[in-house]
Write a protein that binds this DNA or RNA. Structure first.
Lengths: 234, 234
DNA sequence: GGTCCTATAATGTGTAGACTTTATATCTTT
DNA sequence: AAAGATATAAAGTCTACACATTATAGGACC
């Protein structure tokens, strides 16, 4: 199918293996034939079998261990992949017009909870940026962000009135590690005001911490407007 | 590093490429050398370069097109991968003791909203299962699930008092497609009662639809206890 | 200038074979 | 038995090469 010839491609093998798992021919926890045997069965090289099985393992269907062999995962550890787009792209993908508005930007010393969260030494300087992202005139997301001055000195001279801190950071500082959480929080007066909901309403909330080589760069809280849902298919 | 020899492994190449992107040596949108040239530079085969670049593309750093070549993605479309464990595993990973309790299980005709959501023909039969998942004695998740009888006829004879519908389904029916959403909802009286929160409180909520070869199998709403957060690192 | 065709460059995938790494199983010793 | 050493099986990776696929660029034609 992949090749016009009669060769067996790694995609064919993936299909077949998946079908066997689904049909129950290969039961959960059962040990599969090794790569050599499969290569013989599919009359292809071990390289091709290897790629197929490796990808199936990455996708969470199989577990592979050297010497121990390959087995079917009993509880398919399926991983859902959510693309984390930038707000602008997300709004535009909805067919809307993205608009950004700065609320405030101040240099201050890190509050204690933030120092604790990011493992900063006490009283380090941070820039606190608050801003809104709109879909047309409808509030889409309220963003509350702290940027560690020591990690991004240029932030002190940056004007966030036109460019959002996220877009600026992405263009300015690379990152190596991210911790991303989602939760349901309650709208306080501030958030309720910006998102045009009632105080106390549930708000889908994201928290993101970004590091560069172990150095904390930024902490952001993102409050999404009512009705927001994060969706994926697989 | 990967090999004890002095050969360059695909992991080394990935590292180097990432470093060049991060350092700005390879700017966003810029066209990278082709695989042959890179192979020459790293003195390895094109196969090895291919694997490195292919994986970086999968991870969302690069965009590759035949003939057009490879370029650095301007807005790194990083994808966050969340593992979707079964509740039992999730609770046990927290060091708790998992406990399951059936609330109700009834065969009924699909309500209209469900028929619409799953594209069922009107008045199809479904089994409606409601159950609780505990961490010790603490409520962890309240689950509200509908299973399409036509897709899983055995469900009519199944006793859900000991085994949760999710665990049962996974062992019984394979699936090919899943739509998974997360949102913040408001606890109604029922949910509030089960999760031991106040009515109106924000509740982190998941919705999951599962298909087998185009046939809808099940729709589930999962209400998480207060304080739940879905987290990932990358 | 626009439309279709065609050559070509870059990635995509397969074959064949070798060596590497590591977890396990077995054997040996205590 | 328990603990440690060793052989070995299976996956992991690399080389070297070939052919396949496909998007683009440039030319031919209208």
């Amino acid at each position: 199918m992949a090749q016009s010839n009669d060769t067996t491609s790694y995609k064919d093998i993936k299909q077949t293996v998946l079908a066997r798992i689904r049909s129950g021919k290969w039961q959960p926890d059962s040990l599969l034939p090794n790569e050599q045997e499969l290569a013989a069965e599919f009359s292809c090289t071990r390289t091709t079998v290897n790629r197929a099985m490796r990808e199936l393992a990455e996708e969470g269907y199989l577990e592979r261990r050297r010497k121990a062999g390959t087995r079917v995962l009993s509880a398919p550890q399926r991983q859902a992949r959510f693309t984390i787009p930038m707000v602008r792209d997300e709004v535009e993908a909805l067919g809307g017009t993205y608009r950004y508005a700065l609320v405030s930007a101040d240099s201050e010393t890190a509050p204690e909870w933030l120092s604790a969260r990011l493992a900063l030494s006490p009283k380090q300087s941070v820039v606190h940026v608050r801003c809104m992202h709109f879909n047309g005139n409808t509030p889409f997301q309220y963003e509350d962000r702290w940027i560690v001055t020591a990690s991004v000195p240029q932030v002190q001279q940056t004007d966030f009135s036109e460019v959002g801190p996220n877009e600026w950071l992405i263009q300015t500082v690379p990152f190596t590690n991210v911790e991303l959480s989602f939760l349901a929080s309650r709208a306080n007066a501030t958030v309720a005001g910006f998102l045009d909901v009632t105080e106390g309403d549930p708000v889908f909330t994201g928290e993101r911490i970004t590091w560069l080589e172990g150095q904390p760069v930024t902490f952001a809280k993102m409050y999404f407007a009512a009705g927001y849902r994060m969706t994926t298919e697989f």
